[in-house]
């Protein structure tokens, strides 16, 4: 007996969940990075993102992007390294997104790749400023934070917990903050 349920899902990418129409709006609030897919998959489909993460973590560590020292150099204009990393990443990302749009490249499930322009708001300026202050203190933006823990610096768990608290407090006061 062949299990056809999986096949059914991949060949018919229209298993759209239309029940949660407003859920997307809340989910995408103040967030760039969301799941734009309308498909639903079993949990193990997520393993492929873990593999991308592993490669990403190795690169981050080996290029010392997760180093507190490199961040200090960056903010003192003492090294080109971090500017080179971020600059190259932006250029490569831009070309990739352009190619995806130009050639209408689909996901591996055959779904159209979606982009939603975000509205600009004051929060991006104020929030960015606050975020920058924290970045120079901890030497880690959220990505490297997870990597620092991986290198064995378990004290970074405290930083992570504190960052989650900060996010929660933002959510609590969100309505009262200028946007």
């Amino acid at each position: 007996m062949i299990d056809t349920s999986y096949q059914h899902k991949t060949h018919q990418p229209l298993v759209v969940e239309q029940l949660n129409d407003t859920d997307y709006e809340v989910r995408a609030q103040d967030t760039m990075c969301v799941n734009e897919s309308h498909l639903q998959h079993k949990w193990y489909h997520n393993i492929k993102y873990a593999i991308v993460g592993i490669i990403f973590g190795i690169v981050f560590t080996k290029a010392e992007v997760i180093s507190w020292f490199r961040i200090q150099e960056m903010f003192r204009l003492q090294s080109f390294h971090m500017y080179g990393v971020i600059g190259t990443a932006v250029v490569v990302g831009m070309i990739s997104v352009w190619l995806i749009k130009r050639f209408n490249i689909k996901t591996i499930y055959g779904e159209k790749i979606e982009f939603h322009p975000k509205k600009f708001n004051k929060g991006q300026i104020i929030g960015g400023l606050i975020f920058g202050l924290g970045w120079a203190m901890t030497g880690a933006c959220p990505g490297p934070l997870f990597a620092q823990i991986g290198t064995g610096a378990l004290v970074a768990l405290v930083v992570l917990l504190s960052a989650v608290t900060g996010t929660w407090v933002y959510g609590y006061f969100r309505e009262r903050l200028p946007h």
């Binding site: 929060g123 991006q124 929030g127 202050l133 924290g134 930083v159 989650v164 608290t165 900060g166 933002y170």
Partner: peptide, 13 residues
Amino acid sequence: GGFLVGFGSRYAG
């Protein structure tokens, strides 16, 4: 610092 990273990054979107 961790608090500022969490609060600020979400505020900034």
